[in-house]
Computed example of a mutant assay.
Amino acid sequence: MRIGIAALVLAYVLSQFYRAFLAVMTPVLTKELGVSAADLASASGWWFLAFAAMQVPIGAWLDRVGPRLTTGLLLALGAGGAVLFSQATGALQIKLAMALIGAGCAPVLMAGYFIFARSFSPTVFGTLAALMLGVGTLGNVASALPLSWTVAAFGWRETMLGLAVITGAVALAILALVRDPERLEAGRRGSLIELLRMPALWPILAMMVVCYAPIAGLRGLWIGPYFADVHGADQLEIGRISLWVGLAMVAGNFAYGPLDRIFSRRKWLVIAGNAAAVACLFALWWFAAAPPAVTTAILVAAGFLGASFPIVLAHGRSFVPPHLTGRGVTLLNLFGIAPIGIAQIITGRIHAATPAAPAAAPYAAVFLFFAVSTAIGLAVYLLSQDRAD
């Protein structure tokens, strides 16, 4: 069981890498392929939308087939997407490759959560969920400065081919090492409709929509063009800044997990953390033209505070009946991931439509969008029913 979970965690490191690496790739892709920031925002959106679209069938497959085949086979598809990316000559191929990679990464985290929910005590679900997310976020770190070094040393096409090989090897490891939890006795099968009829879930789903989208969007893409256009940063400098934000996200995940066990008021832990994150997003909007040290510090704080995703998911999972575990966690993940793809496409259009005078103006508009949308979701979440396992 443990070695299989380790393989899933390694796969999740790759998943986190793939959702964030475009921020560092921006300068070289723009230079060599002529793609714009809006093109890359759209490509990032395709990753998240493909990831989200797979959540509904994955939920059923986890309940009926199990995490081993579901994750291993789809991750192999993601390896194929990385190969396509390495051969890209324009924006369309990058978008298609990102969609394939997103679909391949889609089951990884939920497969781990499915095993935690079915094989471990409910009292440790939030901690294990945060631990897996925290370790996996090291992939976010790897997509920062280490990726900049690798691209500079070997080239971006060769780097992507190497990643395709690694992804394929991890897919094989999952097929060989993951052990499915014991099947539940035959009985109720249930459906997503049963979950959607639960009023207690809806305010939590609203929070899922906004709890991860801002920091995923900023770290996954907008850090790169923002520091390049506003502060003249090169690829290595963007990699260093991305590294700091990625490390803050790792630290945030590790902090939220123990706090979930210490405090019995899960709802208010989420509210406090995300209220502070909203303040950071408004600060980014207000200080968009400030020196890079200021905006970097704000982004680092936002990365730490915006890491409540596993705790919000644990809050929702606590209302899900056992026979719907797979569909429950993937429904929550759908609401957490799909909005990121939509937000990337929206912010790409906001950026393109905002006059670049001064240079920080289009990015200030992006920051304001994230701040306002997160505040709205947090207001709805105030109506949720608190529950701790």
Rank of each mutant, 00 (worst) to 15 (best):
G104M: 07
A79L: 13
V124R: 02
G90N: 15
G78S: 12
N140T: 13
G136Y: 05
T71G: 11
G66R: 03
V56H: 04
A50T: 01
S36D: 11
M54D: 09
A43M: 13
A41T: 00
A76H: 14
L128M: 12
F48H: 06
A106M: 02
E32A: 11
I58H: 00
F120N: 10
M98F: 08
F85V: 05
V135R: 00
I101S: 04
Y113D: 03
L133T: 15
S86Q: 01
V141N: 02
A41S: 14
L133K: 06
R118K: 15
P57N: 14
L49E: 00
A97R: 03
A117M: 09
A99W: 02
L133I: 12
V141P: 00
F116Q: 01
A91C: 12
G45C: 15
L131D: 01
P107V: 07
G139A: 10
C105L: 11
L138Y: 09
A129L: 01
V141W: 06
L40K: 07
L75K: 06
D63M: 09
L128S: 01
A43G: 08
A52E: 11
G102P: 05
G45H: 10
L96C: 11
D39G: 08
F125Y: 11
M132H: 06
V56Y: 09
F114E: 01
R68T: 09
L109D: 03
R68P: 09
G136W: 02
A60F: 08
W61R: 12
V65K: 06
G81W: 02
A82S: 13
T123W: 00
I94N: 00
G136F: 04
